[in-house]
Simulated assay, not measured.
Amino acid sequence: MNALGSFSRQSAPLLGIDISTSSVKLVELGRDKAGSLILERCAIEPLERGWITDGNVEKFDEVADAVRRLVKKSGTRTKNAALALPSSAVITKKITLPGGMSEQELEVQVESEANQYIPFSLDEVSLDFCVIGPSKSVPNDVDVLIAASRREKVQDRQGLAEAAGLKPVVMDIESHASRLAVGRLIEALPNGGVDALVALYEVGAMTTSMQVIRNEEVLYGRDQAFGGAQLTQL
């Protein structure tokens, strides 16, 4: 569920596709000869009101056409794409598990733990997990982040990418992707941003969100149902 982290491990170009209430946006990242990230292409295509509501794709064919226009407008030939789900569509939970387990053992344990936190059958969800690192509270254990979403939510995003001839290789969570992106800026602060208190504001068309971050930990987060569209109307 880690868009920028996945990109750092692969050499192939990657498209980022952002699907919001008012538009779909595309960026293509590459690397220069020194290995630094560079922006190759970017494009935006507006959506009509009601096509996307609260992160749900209400008009699939219309949004798929918009994504196709977006890809064509950008002129890209890259096919691999990273997308993200809104936080409201994903259940996340940090758990602590014994260290030293194999990947297969972790999967079995995560599925067992997930049953306690997900209010619907695991057959209906797409489930993923990531080992965050050693537990700060329990020696020899590891902290693991579980992420789960209704399968149709994931399939809608995948279908939109595939309808435009793209191959979805990453499905992230919007708030997590934002923190990963801003993390690159925090690293440029004095002392590498260690112990710096940073507020991340995102003003969308219908929603404004704020996250307060310190040392990659979210201390506070809140969404407000007010955005740029209301400001424009006012």
Rank of each mutant, 00 (worst) to 15 (best):
A84Y: 03
P190R: 06
T92F: 08
A84H: 01
S112G: 11
A205K: 02
E202I: 04
G133M: 03
M171I: 15
L122N: 14
V198R: 01
E103I: 08
T207H: 03
I118F: 06
G100P: 04
T92Q: 08
A89K: 09
A84G: 04
Q104C: 00
A188N: 06
S175L: 02
G159H: 12
R151P: 00
A196M: 04
Y201A: 10
D172P: 02
L185Q: 12
E107H: 09
L145W: 13
G159W: 03
A188Y: 02
D195V: 01
N140Y: 10
Q155L: 15
F129D: 00
R151C: 05
S137V: 10
E124Y: 09
D172T: 11
S175W: 04
V194W: 06
K153E: 08
R157A: 02
A82K: 06
S149W: 00
H176I: 11
V131C: 02
D172R: 04
S175N: 07
E124T: 08
A196R: 02
L185C: 08
A164Y: 03
K153S: 13
P134H: 04
L189A: 05
S135P: 09
L127H: 01
P190Y: 07
R184G: 05
S102H: 06
P134G: 04
G159R: 13
V108S: 13
T96S: 15
L106D: 00
N115C: 11
V142G: 15
E174Q: 07
P134R: 05
T96C: 15
P139T: 01
V170I: 15
Q116I: 13
T207I: 13
D141N: 14
A188G: 07
K167L: 12
G193R: 03
A163H: 05
V169S: 10
P168G: 14
V125R: 06
E152Y: 12
E152C: 02
E152G: 01
V198S: 04
D172V: 09
G165M: 13
S175Y: 02
E162L: 03
V170G: 01
M206Q: 15
Q109K: 05
Y201I: 14
I91T: 09
S102G: 07
F129L: 10
V90F: 14
V108C: 02
K94S: 11
P134A: 10
C130V: 14
V138I: 15
E105R: 05
R150N: 04
I132F: 03
P119T: 09
S135I: 11
M171D: 06
K167Q: 12
S137W: 08
V170K: 02
A89M: 08
S137H: 10
Y117I: 09
E162K: 12
Q109G: 04
K136G: 07
I132K: 05
L127V: 05
A164Q: 00
D195S: 08
I132H: 03
V110W: 06
A114R: 02
V90C: 09
G204K: 10
T207W: 01
E105D: 13
L197C: 06
R179V: 01
Q155R: 15
A177D: 06
A164F: 09
